[in-house]
Design a binder for these strands. Structure first.
Lengths: 247, 247
DNA sequence: CGAGTGGTTTGATCCAGATCAACGAGGTTG
DNA sequence: CAACCTCGTTGATCTGGATCAAACCACTCG
């Protein structure tokens, strides 16, 4: 269990003490309200690599926060094509897109052995009416998720393969930093095929682009771990790796 | 003023009588609550083609509902590239992605002379605490927006140029039907350059794809209006226009 | 240990769609 | 009415990244 994650035996203070509180639901709440939140959260539920946390189409009975590890979400559309929608790390909330119709729109799968916090929807829904701060934070997080998707749209819609990879690495690194970790190594827990699917390219291209970035001494690859050797250069690739914009 | 839109002189019943209520904020509210909502909504504000409703970076003082006409939203990223994020039609809500930090993340521009309803954020924020149904509907709409973005991601990430155009036409047509209109003609109020930017392709390609769809008698073009002659075939193109998925 | 297996990398071709260039149809201006 | 826009269409090339094919690990299992 990583040092950033609280222990199971002090559940009553789980959220208040959690080192991820500033990224998660408790943010902006007073001590009293955090305590109310804690009473309904199940903390530190283990989930094994490869297992699904929930499946597309399931009734939404809870939303989840990642405690440790990593997960991916994926959708299968009407034509049976799978699309990876996102990768989730400690502090991230899962299931927000299903709040509207109380059905999960995507499947969430653990990329490595992970621990998650379960926040039952029914009770959360009531608590939200009692605690205005909680409603605001929930809306903040939903609106944040909207912005993230929009950022991703920008990337997928306009950037070259090098730009996409660089953007992803920069984004994963920034998210590490928000959690108080070093900028790198970034661990690519997902398989190449997931990366390829997520970025809308082929695994061969992923491989070639990573090799090129390595040859330019911008990154260093060691199995799943990516050391970022030249962050500004990587950001530059993330920025320049776009087709020329019309005006 | 289109028949679907209420008149200015009965503001006190604006939302309750609006034919778009089932798509908009009032959905699911009781009469009393709708009346509370009506007191704070400014209905039918005109906005001229080409004018901005709000700009990226502006403080969010209100969210908006489209009454008539059409708008686009666009973001300019750090590198100065513009990306069209979406097109908005009567009943759609604008500004939700800024609710979190109370700053507009995108610029909203009228594609034709339009009318919009203005819902002041401050008052809405308070009303939301009083009316649980309103909170739920607002969350439903945010979660809907999330799903829309995800759908778009699916399209942009995986589909061929023909698939993208077909998907857009099908989506615009379905949205017409939700507003109680015929499936077509779909009016492409936006310029080719906006369409190209939105779909992540070039205007020349847009033109060629539209021509091909016309040659196959799937659509008929008349200036900005697209008649859909063979809806199943178009849906088929929307579905098939994807690269083969890995497993 | 060798055979089998799932994942990654490398090499050789091919093609959808970008790019470059030219033209046509309205609309506006002096 | 010519000169000039803006916007959309069409034609001819070029190229990034998909596709096809094969080799290359690193593990596991009998």
């Amino acid at each position: 269990m990583p040092a950033t994650f609280r222990h199971l035996d002090d559940v009553q203070e789980a959220c208040g003490r959690c080192s991820l509180a500033h990224l998660c639901l408790p943010y902006g709440l007073g001590i009293d309200d955090i305590q109310k939140l804690e009473t309904l959260v199940d903390v530190g539920i283990p989930i094994a690599r490869g297992k699904d946390l929930f499946n597309q189409g399931d009734a939404l009975t809870a939303i989840y926060a990642v405690g440790s590890g990593a997960l991916k979400t994926s959708m299968i559309d009407a034509e049976g094509l799978e699309q990876i929608m996102g990768f989730y790390y400690p502090g991230d909330l899962l299931g927000l897109d299903g709040l509207g119709d109380e059905v999960h729109h995507c499947t969430a799968t653990a990329l490595e052995d992970s621990q998650i916090c379960r926040i039952p929807f029914e009770q959360l829904d009531h608590l939200v009416d009692e605690v205005p701060g909680l409603r605001r934070q929930l809306m903040r997080l939903m609106s944040q998720a909207l912005s993230d998707d929009e950022q991703l749209l920008l990337t997928l819609g306009r950037k070259s393969s090098e730009g996409r990879i660089a953007t992803l690495l920069v984004s994963l690194s920034r998210r590490r930093q928000m959690r108080g970790l070093d900028a790198s190594p970034v661990r690519l827990s997902m398989k190449r095929v997931d990366l390829a699917n997520f970025l809308g390219m082929r695994i061969e291209t992923i491989s070639r682009v990573l090799r090129r970035l390595q040859e330019r001494h911008i990154i260093a690859l060691d199995r799943a771990d990516v050391m970022i050797l030249d962050f500004p250069a990587l950001e530059n690739w993330a920025a320049r790796g776009a087709w020329v914009a019309d005006q």
